[in-house]
C-alpha cells in the first residue's frame, strides 16, 4: 500500500470500485458541496471534485475536497494543467496531501475557449502525463521537478483520465501506456455509450498488460433527455453515442426519458462489468448527483465495501 486511498484499497482487495463526481459551486457557499457530498455518502468509494470544469470558474477543487474530507468522504482532487504552472501545481499537491486528501486525478483540462473566460491565457507549463510524473516524483522520489528535496512527501494515489473514443484511436492504448509509465495508478474513462468500441479498447489495454498495472474505472453518464443524448453526440468532442441509443431515448415520451436514461446507464454498467480488465465504474451524473445512489443500487453495486 502506497497511500491511504480508499480507491487503492478497494483495488488492492480486488473489489469493484465505484466513484462519482461533485462539481463545486460557482460561488463561495460550502453548503452546496456538503449537500452534494451527502447524496453520495455510502454509495461510492471516492468523489471526484472537478477543477474549473469546462473552463468555467468555480470554487477551487482543493477547497471543495477539503470540505468533503471534513464530512468523512473520500475526495479525488482533479487537477488540470491549464491554469497553473509547475510551481503552483506542486504547491497545491503538497497542500492537498496536508489536508488529508489521498487521491489526485491529473488532467490536461478543457481549452478555455469554451469557458467563461475565453480571453484568458492558458498555462500548460506541463501536460497531464508530466503532472502524473510530477506527483509520482514528489511521492516516490521525494523530489521536486526542480530537483530539490521534498520535506514530507505527499502520499497521493495518482489517477488520470482516458478517452477510449478520442482520435487517433490506434494510439489510445499507447497513450494510456504512457500515463501508466509516468506513474498513473488508476484511470477514469470518458463516458461510455459504445460498449463495443470500448471493449476493443480494453482488449488493446489488456494486450499491453496495462490493466494489471493500473485500475481502470469505466465512465458512465446517464442521459436526462433525448436532447442531451443528441447534444453529446454532436457537440462533445471525443464522445461516441450510437444512433440506436439516441433512437431509444427518442422512442419514449418526454417525461419518461430520464427514467429511460437511467435504465440505459444501468444496463451499460452491467455490460461494462463483464469486460475483462474493468476494475470499477465512474459515474458522472452531471448536476444529477441525486440519481447516483439509484444507479449504483440498480446496478447491484451496493453496499460498498467498508474500508478502514
Amino acid at each position: 500500500m502506497k497511500t491511504n486511498s480508499v480507491i487503492e484499497k478497494v483495488l488492492e482487495q480486488g473489489g469493484f470500485v465505484v466513484t462519482s463526481e461533485c462539481g463545486p459551486p460557482r460561488g463561495a457557499d460550502p453548503e452546496v458541496v456538503r449537500r452534494k457530498g451527502e447524496l453520495l455518502r455510502g454509495v461510492v468509494d471516492g468523489v471526484n471534485v472537478t477543477d474549473n470544469q469546462t473552463s468555467v470558474v468555480r470554487m477551487s477543487s482543493l477547497s471543495a475536497c477539503a470540505i468533503l474530507k471534513g464530512m468523512g468522504l473520500e475526495p479525488i482532487l482533479q487537477m488540470v494543467c491549464r491554469d497553473r504552472n509547475r510551481i503552483a501545481l506542486q504547491s497545491d499537491l503538497l497542500g492537498a496531501a496536508a489536508l488529508g486528501i489521498n487521491n489526485v486525478l491529473c488532467l490536461s483540462g478543457d481549452h478555455q475557449k469554451f469557458g467563461d473566460h475565453p480571453q484568458g491565457k492558458n498555462v500548460y507549463d506541463i501536460d497531464s502525463v508530466q503532472l502524473i510524473q510530477t506527483v509520482a516524483r514528489l511521492r516516490d522520489e521525494g523530489k521536486f521537478l526542480g530537483g530539490d528535496e521534498v520535506k514530507g512527501r505527499p502520499m497521493l494515489f495518482v489517477g488520470a483520465a482516458a478517452n477510449p473514443f478520442a482520435d487517433p484511436f490506434e494510439i489510445r492504448a499507447a497513450r494510456l501506456g504512457k500515463k501508466v509509465k509516468a506513474g498513473c495508478e488508476f484511470i477514469q474513462t470518458q463516458c461510455i455509450y459504445n460498449v463495443e468500441r470500448f471493449t476493443r479498447w480494453m482488449e488493446m489495454v489488456c494486450e499491453r498488460g496495462l490493466h494489471e498495472r493500473c485500475g481502470i474505472l469505466a465512465g458512465v453518464t446517464p442521459f436526462k433527455t433525448a436532447g442531451m443524448a443528441n447534444y453529446m453526440k454532436k457537440n462533445v468532442p471525443g464522445m461516441d453515442v450510437p444512433d440506436d441509443m439516441i433512437a431509444r431515448m427518442k422512442g419514449v415520451a418526454k417525461e419518461k426519458q430520464a427514467e429511460e436514461g437511467i435504465k440505459i446507464c444501468v444496463e451499460t454498467i452491467e455490460r461494462l462489468r463483464e469486460i475483462p480488465g474493468v476494475r470499477g465504474i465512474h459515474i458522472m451524473a452531471i448536476e444529477w448527483e441525486e440519481k447516483v445512489a439509484e444507479i449504483v443500487k440498480a446496478a447491484g453495486l451496493l453496499p460498498r465495501p467498508e474500508i478502514q
Binding site: 491549464r82 481549452h111 501536460d127 482520435d167 487517433p168 497513450r175
Partner: peptide, 20 residues
C-alpha cells in the same frame, strides 16, 4: 491548443482539435 508535449488530449476528434 494546449501545447501538450505528450498529447493528444481527449478532445481530439476526427483529426481536429476541440477548439474548432
Amino acid at each position: 491548443a494546449k501545447s501538450l508535449l505528450n498529447g493528444p488530449c481527449g478532445g481530439s476528434s476526427e483529426g481536429k482539435c476541440e477548439i474548432d
